[in-house]
């Protein structure tokens, strides 16, 4: 599988990162098998979080077995020092390892969170302290939020080395500032910050719970995923063509094998085809007016 430099971290990550939340839905034996399958495809970058149920615990055994082959990202939703320091130790403990390669501020959504994180006694103090103590190697950020907030975080966190954010043809076709992840990509490229893409395989929101109860959803993802081999290949190729360093696999284990296959066989995607996917998504999504042309 193709590898790309993860910004200036020195890490060469496979173009697919394994979203280890998928392990949460499996028993330990199945989790072990899935990790073996992922490693068989050459994937060397894994991502996990303490909020993903038992994923850390279930990743533990195989992670320890193959520790040198896996660059591990983990995260915290804590915004203050105490909570973040505790979460780092807890994750190390649950994973059963000494060092997390990339530790990310998880799910940044609001400006005031950024204030808290960067203030004295904020989560960043704990993360930097952990870095000094050798518990983590690199500092990152994840966000589904406003691209401007991510740019702001890049400005305010000097030692930020990676960011993770959504990118797919639906998002790419929207012009508003609230969808301008292109600007984030450009800034990251200019500053040597690594980029990880999420929601590459999102088809749309689930129907309302009135229409489809949460318990009746066929996938564990919090959005409705694309789920056929052709569309998964197309979505992977699209995301990988957006100059992301790596694309995170979807959270449902049933989709992972198809995504591994797509990433292994990827040969890139030309610009005219990328535009075709964006235009298709835009028109499928479009309110009015109906148009003859593209």
């Amino acid at each position: 599988m193709e590898t790309r430099a993860l910004g200036d971290t020195g890490q060469e990550s496979t173009v697919l990162t394994f979203g280890s939340i998928a392990l949460n839905w499996l028993e330990q034996e199945g989790a072990n098998q899935l990790v073996e399958l992922v490693l068989d495809h050459g994937v060397n970058h894994f991502d996990v979080a303490p909020t993903y149920g038992d994923a850390e615990l279930k990743l533990g055994p195989k992670l320890r077995q193959y520790r040198d082959d896996i660059f591990l990202g983990c995260k915290t939703q804590e915004r203050e020092y105490e909570g973040a320091a505790r979460k780092i130790d807890r994750s190390l403990d649950r994973l059963g390892i000494d060092t997390i390669d990339l530790y990310q501020i998880h799910g940044l959504e609001y400006e005031d969170e950024l204030d808290t994180i960067t203030a004295d006694g904020g989560a960043l103090d704990a993360i930097r302290e952990a870095k000094d103590d050798g518990k983590i190697d690199h500092i990152g950020l994840t966000s589904h939020g406003n691209p401007e907030l991510i740019l702001d975080a890049i400005d305010r966190i000097d030692d930020l080395e990676t960011v993770m954010f959504p990118l797919n043809p639906v998002v790419a076709g929207k012009d508003g500032d609230e969808y301008d992840y292109e600007a984030v990509l450009e800034r990251c490229e200019a500053e040597g910050i690594g980029t990880l893409g999420i929601k590459a395989f999102a088809k749309g929101s689930w129907p309302s719970t009135d229409e489809l109860a949460e318990a009746d959803r066929p996938y564990a993802n919090w959005y409705e995923p694309v789920d056929t081999p052709e569309v998964i290949r197309e979505r992977f190729d699209f995301a990988a063509a957006q100059s992301l360093d790596t694309v995170v696999s979807p959270g449902d284990p049933k989709l992972v094998a198809m995504v591994l296959d797509a990433a292994s066989r990827s040969t890139g995607m030309g610009e005219a085809r990328q535009r075709a996917l964006i235009e298709e998504a835009r028109h499928n999504d479009s309110p009015v007016p109906e148009q003859l042309h593209h």
């Binding site: 005219a272 085809r273 075709a276 996917l277 298709e280 028109h283 109906e290 003859l292 593209h294």
Partner: peptide, 20 residues
């Protein structure tokens, strides 16, 4: 330059042509 390859004729486009 090639702008689209392939051209995605979506349901909305086909409806617009049917409307013609």
């Amino acid at each position: 330059k090639t702008l689209l390859d392939p051209v995605p004729w979506t349901e909305a486009h086909l409806d617009a042509h049917a409307e013609v």
